[in-house]
Nucleic acid binder design. Sequence first.
DNA 1: GTCTATAAAGCGATAGAC
DNA 2: GTCTATCGCTTTATAGAC
Lengths: 215, 215
Amino acid sequence: MRDRRTAILEAAARVIARRGVRGLRVEELAVEAGVSKALIYYHFDGRAGLLGSTLGFIGDRAERYTAGPSGPASLSGASPPPAGREELERSLLLEFQDVPEVRENSAAWGELRASAVFDPELRGELARSGLSWVREVADLLRSATSRTGAGVSGPVLVAAAERLTALLEGLSARWLSGILPLEHARALMREAIAVELQQLGAGVRADCDRVAVDV
Amino acid sequence: MRDRRTAILEAAARVIARRGVRGLRVEELAVEAGVSKALIYYHFDGRAGLLGSTLGFIGDRAERYTAGPSGPASLSGASPPPAGREELERSLLLEFQDVPEVRENSAAWGELRASAVFDPELRGELARSGLSWVREVADLLRSATSRTGAGVSGPVLVAAAERLTALLEGLSARWLSGILPLEHARALMREAIAVELQQLGAGVRADCDRVAVDV
DNA sequence: GTCTATAAAGCGATAGAC
DNA sequence: GTCTATCGCTTTATAGAC
């Protein structure tokens, strides 16, 4: 195991995912992390400081697994990144998996985002992580449209990225609160990607033709 | 002022919008409502019962201002509902206004949705309200596409409605947490509506042609 | 750095008078 | 129906030993 401080942050992410930010009790966190309560106060500046650090920790971790290799498959070779659209879909659908690490990160992230509405101290980190995420998705959109959609301007890509990331957060919230099945959320996300790409001029041309025929 | 019970619910919506569900203290609510703590326990079944009642109250209020007339302008006559697309935009952009009642409702709704992730008791009401909202938006989409997009199937409309409502929630969360300016949120929402409508075959035909020319 | 023990405060909930 | 007063548990936070 890594140093105690990191162990506490990992435990905090787990507890937040399970109980929410308001449900996080320093004592429960201590048990989860296998340390004493006092040690948490030694390493962090009270409960508030702990939450801030945890938000940063979760943001970093999310960037790591979003930007990283696409799992076991990537072991098979040092091939250059896959075609833009696949990479885009992979990246955005990554959040919709019922595996502990992902669910934990999504839940914790959603909690901290919701908490930021009432706690201005958390907004800085939230804005920072959000911005880099939007930029990343905008880049993926550019790659995905580089062949067919040449000449798409930056702001248009950024707007599409903002819509896709905001949609992802909305769908994620519904999934986590149990009112939207996982597969349904994935399907809606995939469709949204297709719609945005088509709008940017990278969609399957037939779709656009079909629509025209309907008229 | 109405009866005390209603006054307490109104105060609860205000406090939740200000402090969040997590931050709601019975004592603070008592001060806000101008009553004693004990009276709250007399009218509601503890804190949990109070939250449940408040969720219902907020849901009803949201339906009222979503389905209701479009403000002062509607005083001018008993004209039938406006063209589908305008009505759709009006309905979805209604949530993005920096007036107390709307902001309060949005914030409280977002809070209760976030709380439902960790409190299964809140999910029933959430699912009920969410479903009727999706249906309403799907109906508006049908109206907006009835001329040019004849023959669009129900499930396709529902999926588009689900994407738009989920996007709205995602954008709303960002607006309320102060990382997305109100006007930017409105613009993104409007664009999303345009993109979805075009996909459904109701968009300005020229857009699709333009894309085809780019190839 | 890490623990045990304890102080201090917060908060939900109730009793009982009016 | 509404209030004042208070109880009692929970939770944050710190003191001080090792």
